[in-house]
Design a protein around this nucleic acid. Structure first.
Lengths: 248, 248
DNA sequence: GCAAAAGTGTTTTAAATACACCCATGA
DNA sequence: TCATGGGTGTATTTAAAACACTTTTGC
């Protein structure tokens, strides 16, 4: 952020930089799995611009607030969840001139991952919020307000990529989960079918990804499944590589 | 960026969000390989705050400018290079209150990769700029002005990770390069020794990573090496995985 | 008994690793 | 001739993929 001495160039008028001032908004891409399908939390905008259109939830950074704090606050306002307990990471920043008709507003996009919530959205400001199943076809073509199509696409790409080398998938599950539930996450996010048998061996073979609790979960029908919780690994080795090597 | 209706909560005074306004700076982590060592372009600050200290080059986003445009402009101002021709990507944004004593200034960090430049820095404003060999020990402990230690560390992590699955390494090389030069990039960035023989086979086996030009380069001593240029792959398959599986 | 989901064993294929060895040049 | 880096061949180990088969539950 040093103010570079553009002043002093022979070929340019002796003016310093003319920095614009921005308001900074946080926009959240909150993902979960609902009924075996990847879903994103959207709100219907209650006022202009884009009134009545769907948008990612978000809000402005307030005085004295760090970006991450704003994201946590918005997350709790929108979902009624303790943002602290959810996976939350910054994706990237958008500030193309004209992206918001209200003026120069930069948006810092965050990705949040939530387990399938018992009460998805309740007791919050955002009664206008709902989980929208993600239809990959619809993405990136004026579906959402502002440039939120693009923001959502980038956040989704981040999530898809991180399943490979990080234990992010477990953030979609509750405290404890079965290997089958974890597999459902991979299948929903990547939109592929995975061999349950090879998947089981692979996951349990990755050091620190999941640890057995010793308990079991009884499905409506079928053999009971072992329960696991997150391990302490931050990088998966070996990685859970996407079939087809991510080329798609 | 919708202004959420925080107003209306029973427990809070009926005030809307109080967004702060920010100036937005772009800070550049420009990496290259000099004498087989990874190096970063730093400037010595010519005025307060942090006068006389080392910092990443950068500058403010101007009115009507997109973030990427600002980065390209700063890159050309600092290095005299056409920013267009270099690899340039956004890393992340920093806006912790107090990070800049001049007031609320957000910094959007960019990572740039340059081939070893014939004239590293010349004919620009930034006579105060120089290539600093990267000593991994020194990172993250008050070496640089502002929070640039952290910014540099994150950018470096991005670069190290992207060597694995993207053809980024080739951006450190000129138009054409030998496999040995490409290996030197991996060795410098990862700080490892790689087996030249296995590396050769691996690189040439990855579809679209490098394509032979048919020409040769004659080293001072030894057998001449085949010359290659970048292929059209954007993702490497199979990936060039780090020895030890990135766990370090 | 059957259906359904969990989990193991075994074989095949592909990639990472280790390292012996040959190649083409300058001095 | 040697030194130096370029490049190939081949065996070993590791992981991915395919799939037959056994286990444990509800009905």
């Amino acid at each position: 952020m040093p103010a570079q001495a553009t002043a002093g160039r022979a070929t340019l008028p002796d003016v310093p930089d003319q920095p614009t001032v921005f308001r900074i908004a946080i926009d959240l891409t909150i993902l979960t799995i609902r009924d075996g399908q990847l879903a994103v939390l959207l709100i219907e905008r209650g006022k202009p611009p884009f009134e009545g259109q769907l948008a990612l939830p978000g809000g402005f950074v307030r005085s004295g607030e760090d970006l991450h704090d704003t994201a946590v606050r918005e997350l709790s306002e929108e979902t009624g969840l303790e943002g602290r307990s959810l996976h939350l990471e910054q994706v990237r920043t958008y500030a193309t001139p004209g992206r918001d008709p209200r003026g120069p507003i930069a948006s810092v996009a965050y990705l949040a991952i939530a387990p399938d919530l018992p009460t998805p959205v309740a007791g919050t400001d955002a009664a206008r919020a709902h989980w929208e199943p993600l239809d990959l076809e619809r993405l990136g073509c004026g579906w959402l307000a502002f440039d939120h199509d693009v923001i959502l696409r980038h956040a989704l790409e981040r999530a898809r990529a991180k399943l490979e080398y990080s234990p992010l998938a477990a953030a979609f599950c509750g405290e404890t989960f079965t290997i089958g539930e974890l597999r459902a996450v991979y299948e929903a996010v990547w939109q592929v079918r995975l061999d349950p048998r090879n998947f089981h061996r692979k996951v349990t073979g990755v050091a620190g990804f999941v640890v057995p609790t010793g308990e079991r979960r009884y499905p409506p029908t079928g053999r009971p499944a072992g329960l696991y919780r997150r391990g302490n690994a931050t990088l998966l080795y070996p990685a859970m590589l996407r079939p087809g090597g991510s080329r798609r």
